[in-house]
Write a protein that binds this DNA or RNA. Structure first.
Lengths: 137, 137
DNA sequence: CTACCACCTGTACCATACTACGGAGTCAAG
DNA sequence: CTTGACTCCGTAGTATGGTACAGGTGGTAG
């Protein structure tokens, strides 16, 4: 069975070497066996694991959440519904963030509409609004 | 002219004392004059400044951006259009974040649809997809 | 006059996700 | 056998926006 050095693993997974070690410390990948020199010898499967992490990260999961996701897989007690629950919670998180951004944007759009773009900055209605806004947008 | 201690300022602006000092270090508020004891003596206006910072933060500006916004006001060269430009850039940032979140959400929704919620976690289509997704959502 | 609270400085710490660096040991090619 | 690339470990730094001490002084109410 072939094993990979940390450099090969990092290259194949498209991450940095330091990142691989960092993920090991964070418990996202298993500590691999070492050769007599202390070099890490990885099975091929660690590349898949790293790709899993990258994809989950792209979906907005934090490293801690990804760790949980990975441990769900190992626990025979865990059901598919548990996993689905995580995904749904994450969807709700994302929706909340989007609502927040939408509110910010609406306020900013209002402010830019109020500003003709002429005149000196100290008369700018945008800055004036920031001085006197009462309620949260 | 009345002055305020840091505690009063923090209380009126609805932030922590440490936050006021932190903003001073970050250059968001001026270093106030000190009494013989070394106590900070703030003018009332600093409360307005802190409220400005809070509102701008609510609109999604970072502390560095807020610092720039504040300095724009002081520079007589700056025009209203410069301020408007900042706001528009921030709107574009927000829109980009929203697009990113929308993509994440769509992928997650797809995944949850593929999962019936029955069965053990190691057969979960969500986890399987994370193992084998090829393209970014 | 003595509590007791507010304030001072500086430093360290929280979470998040890495990235960089120094100094030493290892492996493979030429 | 030497050279250069690779790896090891531990620590520290990046950015973001604060929060939490410790240890010491100031101000004021009773």
């Amino acid at each position: 069975m072939t094993t990979l050095t940390i450099g090969k693993v990092a290259q194949r997974a498209g991450v940095g070497i330091e990142t691989v070690r960092f993920y090991e410390r964070r418990g996202l990948i298993d500590e691999p066996p070492r050769g007599p020199s202390g070099y890490r010898h990885y099975p091929e499967s660690v590349v898949l694991r790293l790709l899993f992490v990258r994809r989950a990260k792209d979906l907005g999961f934090t490293l801690n959440e990804i760790k949980e996701l990975l441990s769900l897989r190992l626990d025979p007690q865990t059901t598919c519904a548990d996993v689905k629950q995580r995904a749904e919670t994450k969807i709700a998180d994302i929706e909340e963030k989007m609502r927040s951004l939408r509110r910010m944007k609406q306020s900013l759009v209002q402010l830019t509409k109020s500003c003709s773009g002429n005149g000196p900055a100290n008369d700018c209605p945008i800055l004036e609004s920031l001085d006197s806004l009462e309620q949260k947008p």
